[in-house]
Amino acid sequence: MMSATGGARRRSGTAVGLGLATLYLSLVVLVPLATVAWRSTSHGTDSFWHSVTTPEALAALRLTMGAAAIVVVVNVVMGSLIAWILVRDDFIGKRLVDTLIDLPFALPTIVAGLVLVSLYGPTSPLGINLAYARSGVLVALLFTTLPFVVRTVQPVLLEMDGEMEQAAASLGASRLTIFRRIVLPNLYPGIAAGAALAFARASSEFGATVLISGNIPFKTQVASVHIFGLIESDNATGAAAVSTVLLVIALLVLLALDVAQRWAVRRG
């Protein structure tokens, strides 16, 4: 009797929780996203296609996606490496480095942009001028997305059973084989999650790129800045249309990463 009521209570508790979560998700995420999509077609599909296929829009989308892809690849490698060092190695200042990783999260991205301009701009103390160049966009995106991969891979490494590696070693596996066949497959879920977050962030970044890129159409203007330009010139529908394309691409990439991760894990 008692267990039956306990079970029923738990079930109704779950229902309340589920309802709350759905409502919250709808209000905060789904409704605004749906509004963007709905808004983008408020002047008909012709106008939608026109807005997203202007040469300027296409160039901005291409740059954004290309830069995001490069940034994800670089930060997956470097972020995993940093996570590895933070978990497996001991060195002086490790705690400090561990804290520094989060700085790109904490800094308003426009401040990050400012820092990058003064470091890699026309008056660079290092003599490196990346301002108004695509490389500047890349550097800005690398900076803002690094923490994602580090922070998703790190806990997986911490949790990983080190005895798996010892077992593989006693079975005759070389260090490289152990890394490739034992360590890496166990990191895939963390790497995929980090890559997804980094991609999402890189394809939508505004603040960090807006200063250093100079926003030159067809050259350094990223999608989010292009969208901002459309809003400023009173073309809200066009802005919504480009946003919708950005959203769809992001969704597809997230799905693809998830599928790839499951496949990679199963392949071992």
Binding site: D161, E163, M164, Q166, A167, S170
Partner: peptide
């Protein structure tokens, strides 16, 4: 790797993937 011993761990050390 070069001792050719089989080792069995208390907590199995199964390759979980």
């Amino acid at each position: 790797q070069r001792r050719n011993v089989g080792f069995v761990f208390q907590h199995y050390a199964a390759f979980k993937h």
